[in-house]
Write a protein that binds this DNA or RNA. Structure first.
Lengths: 148, 148
DNA sequence: GCTTGACCTTAACCTTGCTGGAAGGTTTAT
DNA sequence: ATAAACCTTCCAGCAAGGTTAAGGTCAAGC
């Protein structure tokens, strides 16, 4: 199988497949004309990479998954541990994004959003002395002041 | 104010501050010895950048926030719109991460996690014909089979 | 006078995971 | 013969800095 067909089958780009080879995740035989030639085993590996990437594994982590895949003496607990570790990482990221979102929502709620130039958002973002840990913003919907 | 003090005050690294200057977000005067010299206005801008970065704004978006900050005729609605747009972006990211997490949790639930080599996770990740959109994985906790 | 240490300078490479383009070879069809 | 559709390698670039490297500056201490 040439690279284009593998690309269509795995949903990867040919560029990406070559990249994985350059990074040492997969290998390939060569045809007489120099074209890459892939076995079904290669396609299976590339499918693993494609799907693992989609659920958040890095290339290094894909490398480990490939090692586990190639090791018929592996323990399924090793694989499960890797997945659970990745879940924990995702949870961390989710927490972080949630915190950012909460901060932004709090900021937005303090901004009148009208034609006046006074803006609580900009004031909060650039005020020299914050008076609070920045990621913890709470408070009422009190108008900032000025004309109205 | 020299760059080190500004760094301490804003929580940014000196390298980051120079980077922002190279990217055209802030400027600085120079002392006779070539050292950068920052005004309070500069510090305010850098504080804006530091906090905006923390809640997910890119440097390009920080550039826009700085423009709004410098425009005394801005409308607070413009700022609020930017924040709400960023919230929407965060929501997209959150949805994506949640979907990945759900997939991983479903995968993990199908793996026995014992000393046997058979692993539903690897099978799902590398099976040639998925038979389902990969991000939608459901199903029972049925054992895979083999010795036990 | 001289050295040490803390501070500053620029320049250039490393990271992650590719994508895009340049410049060219191969194969197949017309 | 030539165009279309493959394939090849190599080089640049994205975000947002971190990390050396190699060096200038300044104050203090001997």
């Amino acid at each position: 199988m040439k690279i284009g067909e593998v690309a269509r089958e795995t949903g990867l780009s040919a560029k990406a497949i070559r990249h994985y080879e350059a990074e040492g995740l997969v290998s390939s035989r060569r045809l007489d004309n120099g074209y890459r030639d892939y076995t079904q085993a290669n396609v299976t590996q590339l499918t693993l990479i494609a799907r693992a990437r989609k659920v958040g594994f890095s290339l290094d982590e894909c490398r480990e998954l490939l090692t586990l895949q190639g090791d018929t003496d592996r323990h399924s607990s090793d694989v499960k541990r890797a997945v659970e570790h990745k879940i924990a990482q995702l949870d961390e990221q989710l927490d972080h994004l949630h915190a950012m979102r909460d901060t932004l929502v709090a900021l937005a709620s303090r901004c009148r959003g009208d034609e006046a130039p006074e803006c609580a958002i900009l004031q909060n973002l650039s005020r020299p002395q914050p008076g609070m840990t920045f990621t913890v913003l709470e408070g009422s919907h009190e108008p900032i002041g000025g004309k109205s």
